[in-house]
Design a protein around this nucleic acid. Structure first.
Lengths: 145, 145
DNA sequence: TGTTAATATATCGCGCACGATATAAATTCA
DNA sequence: TGAATTTATATCGTGCGCGATATATTAACA
């Protein structure tokens, strides 16, 4: 059963590297008091504040039943404010608080620190970027299923 | 803050594709009555039965505090048997049951079905394999930290 | 040999991640 | 308009995933 050997699996490395990456982020995000999924939500909101839950869901490819409790935790932490949209009361719009906005400055150095970590592991940046672009392409296909 | 835009993130695509891959496996694994991490444990045991928790932990890069409850669930399901090793009673050795072994035949077609899914999404197999090899190399570095 | 340190697994707590289902608001259309 | 459908979010239950800590067994060594 050659196709069932772990080393021949196509998908396992993606699963494993994803967890290793999250672990690599952790020391830096811990200093900011946030988790990796919370960091992703902040990235999205720093880029465009006042998005609905659905918008964040599409950008991060996370179901709303993952995001709702996550956003509530972030509200409790004082990072965001959740409120019903006036033009459509089904929607819940997420706004950054002053504190949520302030965190952006502290987070600015995180991506570079991660890249330095990668450098230590003999990972070539160009290869990394090439891989990222390919994966983004696939995600474009898979997401629209 | 160009480096904090989601589309410029290097690591987010790995996180996203990992979850999309797990979702892609789900319909096939559901028929076998198992989850993706449970499938990975079975892959390892089908290749070499009677491994200790620690061995499985290293191969799958999962902490034992993830594996212990997972293996207990698999024991409850009748797929594996957990027992203390005679030569070292700290170790817990995992053996496949008859049922756990029998599942291998049913799982044999899973990898091909996944690849067919990828094919539908205009994903080139050679690219996929190339990327896998790069990631495996990279895991080799990160894992030994 | 007796004490200390290292190793292997288990337990606890929390935060995702998601399928299934519920609820409420908006839209459609008979 | 009013009932049926769709859309947006929330709730519930289960299974990871992992940091912190506990427990038991073995190894090391004074």
């Amino acid at each position: 059963m050659e196709q069932l050997k772990l080393e021949n699996q196509i998908c396992f490395p993606f699963y494993a590297i994803s967890r290793l990456i999250t672990r690599a982020y952790q020391p830096y995000l811990e200093k900011l008091g946030i988790t990796y999924p919370q960091y992703l939500v902040l990235l999205v909101l720093w880029e465009k504040d006042g998005l609905a839950v659905q918008d964040i869901s599409e950008k991060l490819i996370l179901n709303t039943n993952t995001l709702t409790p996550l956003l509530k935790r972030m509200e409790t932490m004082g990072l965001v404010k959740r409120q019903k949209a006036k033009e459509d009361e089904r929607k819940v719009v997420i706004h950054l608080t002053r504190e949520g906005k302030a965190l952006q400055a502290a987070a600015a150095s995180v991506p570079l620190k991660l890249l330095e970590n990668m450098g230590d592991m003999a990972v070539d940046l160009d290869e990394l970027v090439g891989m990222r672009d390919k994966i983004q392409e696939w995600i474009g296909c898979m997401g629209n299923k």
